[in-house]
Amino acid sequence: GIDPFTGEAIAKFNFNGDTQVEMSFRKGERITLLRQVDENWYEGRIPGTSRQGIFPITYVDVIKRPL
């Protein structure tokens, strides 16, 4: 089901994660935001896939912030 505490964002740019914990994505992908890790990073996942990880806040347009 849908978790009411998650947020939502759209990727503004392609992001290629450097490490296992970073999640790569392509511009235009819809991302579920799980939490804000710190002032620069979100943790999120791509709905319908097993992809999950952290990524820079500046790479996405936030539609709804996670609670």
Rank of each mutant, 00 (worst) to 15 (best):
residue 30 R to Y: 11
residue 15 F to N: 02
residue 31 I to V: 05
residue 36 Q to L: 10
residue 55 F to Y: 01
residue 17 G to W: 02
residue 67 L to F: 06
residue 41 W to D: 02
residue 40 N to T: 13
residue 17 G to C: 05
residue 24 S to T: 08
residue 64 K to R: 10
residue 1 G to L: 11
residue 7 G to H: 13
residue 60 V to H: 00
residue 3 D to L: 12
residue 57 I to A: 13
residue 38 D to K: 08
residue 58 T to Y: 11
residue 23 M to E: 00
residue 36 Q to F: 07
residue 37 V to D: 02
residue 36 Q to S: 07
residue 21 V to A: 14
residue 64 K to S: 06
residue 42 Y to L: 10
residue 56 P to E: 03
residue 30 R to L: 11
residue 26 R to H: 11
residue 22 E to N: 06
residue 8 E to P: 05
residue 1 G to N: 12
residue 22 E to R: 06
residue 3 D to S: 13
residue 25 F to V: 03
residue 61 D to S: 10
residue 26 R to W: 09
residue 7 G to F: 11
residue 19 T to M: 09
residue 7 G to W: 15
residue 61 D to W: 15
residue 1 G to R: 07
residue 51 R to A: 03
residue 55 F to C: 01
residue 4 P to R: 12
residue 42 Y to D: 00
residue 2 I to F: 13
residue 58 T to L: 11
residue 11 A to Y: 01
residue 32 T to K: 08
residue 15 F to V: 02
residue 59 Y to N: 04
residue 4 P to T: 13
residue 34 L to P: 00
residue 10 I to P: 01
residue 30 R to Q: 08
residue 7 G to P: 07
residue 2 I to S: 14
residue 65 R to E: 15
residue 52 Q to C: 11
residue 56 P to V: 03
residue 24 S to A: 07
residue 33 L to A: 03
residue 56 P to W: 02
residue 9 A to N: 01
residue 5 F to T: 13
residue 22 E to H: 13
residue 1 G to V: 12
residue 51 R to G: 02
residue 42 Y to M: 11
residue 17 G to N: 04
residue 42 Y to S: 03
residue 21 V to Q: 14
residue 50 S to F: 10
residue 61 D to H: 14
residue 27 K to R: 10
residue 25 F to H: 02
residue 63 I to S: 05
residue 64 K to A: 06
residue 54 I to W: 07
residue 23 M to V: 04
residue 47 P to T: 11
residue 16 N to W: 13
residue 62 V to Y: 05
residue 34 L to I: 12
residue 46 I to S: 01
residue 52 Q to F: 11
residue 39 E to D: 13
residue 12 K to E: 03
residue 24 S to G: 07
residue 65 R to G: 15
residue 62 V to S: 03
residue 9 A to S: 04
residue 12 K to A: 07
residue 27 K to P: 05
residue 4 P to Q: 14
residue 35 R to Q: 07
residue 22 E to M: 13
residue 64 K to F: 07
residue 15 F to P: 00
residue 40 N to E: 12
residue 31 I to A: 00
residue 63 I to L: 10
residue 53 G to T: 01
residue 38 D to E: 07
residue 9 A to G: 10
residue 60 V to F: 02
residue 51 R to L: 04
residue 18 D to G: 13
residue 3 D to R: 08
residue 37 V to T: 05
residue 33 L to Y: 03
residue 50 S to G: 12
residue 39 E to K: 11
residue 42 Y to H: 03
residue 28 G to H: 05
residue 54 I to G: 01
residue 51 R to M: 04
residue 43 E to W: 13
residue 39 E to R: 10
residue 8 E to N: 07
residue 55 F to M: 02
residue 9 A to L: 05
residue 56 P to T: 02
residue 30 R to V: 11
residue 50 S to V: 09
residue 33 L to P: 00
residue 59 Y to T: 08
residue 19 T to E: 10
residue 10 I to Y: 07
residue 45 R to W: 10
residue 17 G to H: 03
residue 5 F to V: 10
residue 48 G to D: 08
residue 30 R to N: 06
residue 67 L to S: 15
residue 30 R to C: 09
residue 62 V to L: 06
residue 47 P to H: 10
residue 48 G to N: 10
residue 42 Y to Q: 02
